[in-house]
Nucleic acid binder design. Structure first.
Length: 304
DNA sequence: TGAGGAATAT
DNA sequence: CATATTCCTC
């Protein structure tokens, strides 16, 4: 008996990031380049238990005040949904909240939490056996859907890294979104750059096509990009709440091409919300989802 | 090797 | 069209 040396030692990076926020090192000598360390501490964590539903609305619908929800609960819920969406066979360990790995990114040894699992010491007779090795390999990931939220995070990270340092791997790491692969980011980045480039050329030129329903249109591109500024300190309070990272949304497995107008059914958003406290005028929106329709309409600052 | 990035593919 | 995958170069 004696298996599992490291209890929870998945991938270094992730662990590191989380460890940072966990540590109470207020050592901000002003040299910390890693804004990651800027992550809020446990005491600064946005109220997870904040009700997403306004009290008025809640009472109107007789919605009982949300039960105490801890980060763990939220995360767990997300994980639940997530896993059930893809396969539903991942026993969510309700021990600690951390970016679990629903599947491994690029062929990484699956960290066996080892618990109620049979230690398969290479079952020789597994010739035609059911390949339950669908853990990660052999199984194709569903298409990643870049929701406005995800994209927002993406833009935030990219803008903070600077166009120069914004490379897939780094972006992926800083986004720290479970399930996000380098390829995902690379692909998106490619398109994003294209968009930025195109926009830069038309900076203040050409009519803004009202058809800009593009995801990109929803998230303003940092001027530093369209422009050519070295690195203007564009402070941003990144609200990367450890433990409840936005779960990437996936579309349907394969076919389904969505015909021009009319929206497809699916509609699952992420359970995030308090990204960017809203002090900085970076994004502007903080809506909690964007499946069906969200952006086509401009933000209405409350009703006048 | 592995990663970035453009070119293709689906 | 939005992503994914491939291909090529460093």
């Amino acid at each position: 008996m004696g298996e599992v040396g490291e209890g929870s030692d998945f991938d270094g990076e992730f662990a590191m990031i989380m460890a940072n926020q966990s540590e109470q090192d207020d050592d901000q000598s002003g040299r910390v380049t890693d804004w990651v360390m800027d992550l809020p501490t446990a005491s600064e964590l946005p109220p997870l238990n904040l009700s997403l539903v306004p009290q008025e609305l809640a009472s109107a619908f007789q919605i009982p005040p949300e039960p105490g929800r801890s980060a763990m609960d939220v995360t767990r819920a997300s994980n639940n949904t997530f896993s059930s969406l893809r396969r539903n066979s991942l026993p969510i360990s309700n021990s600690n909240f951390k970016p679990f790995s629903p599947f491994n990114p690029s062929g990484h040894a699956p960290n066996h939490t080892a618990s109620a699992m049979v230690d398969d010491a290479d079952s020789t007779g597994g010739a035609d056996d059911l390949d339950q090795d669908q853990s990660a390999r052999t199984v194709k990931r569903p298409r990643l859907v870049w929701t406005p939220q995800l994209h927002k995070r993406f833009v935030d990270v990219v803008s903070h890294l600077g166009l120069k340092n914004a490379v897939p791997k780094t972006i992926m790491q800083l986004m720290n979104v479970e399930g996000l692969t380098r390829e995902n980011v690379a692909s998106h980045l490619q398109k994003y750059r294209l968009y930025v480039k195109r926009m830069a050329g038309l900076s203040s030129e050409g009519p803004a096509s009202p058809s800009d329903n593009s995801l990109f249109a929803s998230t303003p591109v940092p001027q530093s990009f369209t422009r050519e500024s070295p690195q203007l300190p564009v402070p941003m309070s990144y609200a990367g709440v450890p433990g409840m990272y936005p779960v990437p949304v996936f579309g349907m497995g394969q076919n389904h091409q969505l015909n021009g107008h009319g929206h497809m059914g699916m509609g699952m958003g992420m359970g995030m919300m308090p990204i960017t406290g809203g002090s900085h005028g970076s994004g502007a929106y903080s809506n909690g989802f964007g499946p069906g329709a969200s952006y086509p309409h401009h933000v209405n600052h409350g009703d006048k």
